[in-house]
């Protein structure tokens, strides 16, 4: 028995469909998790004690629970509470909850890298909190944040494979389904691996471009 490319060609419509599901899951995940993570990171460095504590509890609580367990919670647990949601939504929710905890820590590192003199100058000029954050702090934190951010994005991309366990037919799920139908593992697993490799490469490339864009003059 050897590697049979024909198998992949025959299953291409389903496989490509599953790639789209992976991309959709990943893009939605990052679109939702990024702003929330930034808010959690800002809360982590806030001057308000209550906000700081709440954010620290969230981050430290969630990152000590396996993302897989969180996914089981949203998939099996929520319906038990009477919340009927589609597998895709359950997976997206679980992944978001997990990703935010990690991403917030990555972004916080960028925020704490800023010279305290910048805050003082902004305060002395009477700039408000959100103005200061939007115009001064975040733009300066971006160059520091961008590396860890894309590393986290790549980790999250691969984490979307866990959605297969809660009945979402993304690349891993579809490959496994085809594997059990055909008893051919190598072909479909190779396809799945190449898909993640390609998507990760796109992210790494995007990082290089963005890094140049947000670099401080």
């Amino acid at each position: 028995m050897s590697f049979d490319l024909d198998l992949i060609v025959q299953a291409l419509p389903e496989l490509l469909q599953s790639v789209l599901v992976t991309i959709e899951l990943f893009v939605l995940l990052m679109l939702i998790a990024t702003p929330i993570s930034l808010l959690v990171a800002l809360a982590r460095v806030s001057s308000m004690l209550g906000l700081r504590c709440a954010a620290a509890c969230y981050v430290n609580g969630i990152r000590c629970i396996p993302v897989l367990v969180i996914l089981y919670f949203t998939f099996y647990g929520l319906p038990q509470l009477g919340l009927r949601i589609a597998p895709f939504t359950a997976a997206l929710t679980g992944l978001t909850i997990g990703t935010v905890a990690y991403l917030a820590e990555d972004l916080r590192a960028g925020l704490t890298a800023i010279d305290p003199g910048q805050f003082q100058a902004a305060d002395a000029l009477g700039l408000g909190y959100w103005w200061r954050t939007r115009r001064i702090i975040v733009p300066q934190a971006l160059p520091v944040m961008i590396g860890p951010y894309f590393t986290r994005a790549i980790v999250s991309l691969k984490a979307t494979s866990m959605a297969s366990i809660v009945a979402v037919n993304e690349v891993t799920g579809e490959s496994m389904a085809l594997l059990t139908q055909t008893y051919r593992a190598l072909e479909f697993l190779t396809f799945a691996a190449i898909t993640y490799l390609t998507l990760s490469a796109v992210l790494a490339f995007a990082q290089v471009i963005l890094q140049r864009k947000v670099a401080l003059p």
Binding site: G117, Q118, A121, A124, I136, Q140
Partner: peptide
């Protein structure tokens, strides 16, 4: 300020 603290961005 002593160290100017201009906004570098």
């Amino acid at each position: 300020f002593q160290h100017f603290n201009l906004f570098p961005n």
